[in-house]
């Protein structure tokens, strides 16, 4: 069953037609990746889903519910966690407070503690830095914190916007491993990446977006060996 479905979404930035009739689907339990070059509309797609940007036309269905014009704090409450591009850690909140922000809608202190323990299980490094300010951490640590913060929401759908951006290859490797692990444990993931090779390797299905249009879709392994994809994104 599809957890998320975009139908013919058109989004504009002023006069710029950023998404031209995007249709895509994420099924429960899948990793779906959206790949494409800079400015193709990958981030805009995620922002449109979470409600940061309003589409001009089209519908977004989540869990059978129309969330096309839902503001971001409500989509988040409904279970869609969006880890934005550039991680966007709160720089002057401590690491612990950053995590607590992720569980802002949770009132029960005990639930928050439990979720935090789970985040430490995935990212043991975070635990050592709880009382440090978020802005003082390295890029890789910030990315882990950003994902950890999203996990604090215990989302049904985790959307990641270029988690590999600007990170050393070994860190990228670690992060993709954790994404894979999260999925194995049942988390549905929509992954936006410029690093097409890494993304397609762990994805069940992929979409290729070019200047705001979905130009190709198929299973991850298939796209990985596709001539056009190889030439444009894997060369």
């Amino acid at each position: 069953m599809s957890l998320l479905r975009l139908e013919n979404i058109n989004t504009f930035y002023g006069g710029i037609h950023a998404l031209k009739g995007v249709t895509l689907e994420v099924n429960e339990g899948e990793i779906v990746t959206l790949i494409g070059s800079n400015g193709a509309g990958k981030s805009t797609t995620l922002k449109t889903i979470s409600g940061q940007v309003k589409p001009k036309s089209g519908t977004i269905l989540y869990n059978g519910k129309d969330i096309t014009n839902t503001p971001p704090h409500v989509t988040a409450f409904d279970g869609i966690a969006h880890v934005p591009e550039g991680r966007r850690i709160f720089p002057r909140l401590t690491v612990k407070e950053n995590l607590e922000m992720g569980a802002f809608s949770v009132k029960d202190r005990k639930v928050i503690e439990e979720r935090m323990e789970r985040v430490f299980h995935y990212f043991p490094k975070i635990k050592e830095r709880l009382h440090q300010k978020g802005g003082t951490m390295s890029g890789g640590e910030q990315q882990m914190l950003a994902i950890g913060r999203a996990l604090m929401m215990q989302p049904k759908l985790l959307m990641l916007d270029e988690p590999s951006m600007g990170l050393a290859p070994i860190i990228v490797e670690q992060i993709f491993e954790i994404i894979h692990e999260l999925n194995e444990e049942g988390m549905t993931i929509l992954l936006v990446e410029q690093n097409a090779f890494q993304a397609l390797q762990i994805a069940h299905r992929g979409y290729v977006i070019q200047t705001g249009e979905i130009v190709m879709t198929g299973p991850g392994q298939e796209l990985l060996v596709n001539e056009q994809v190889r030439e444009a994104y894997l060369a």
């Binding site: 979470s50 940061q52 971001p72 704090h73 988040a76």
Partner: peptide, 13 residues
């Protein structure tokens, strides 16, 4: 510190 991201944390800005 970051209005947009706070909204992503279910905060009604």
């Amino acid at each position: 510190q970051d209005r947009e991201t706070a909204a992503l944390m279910t905060v009604n800005v």
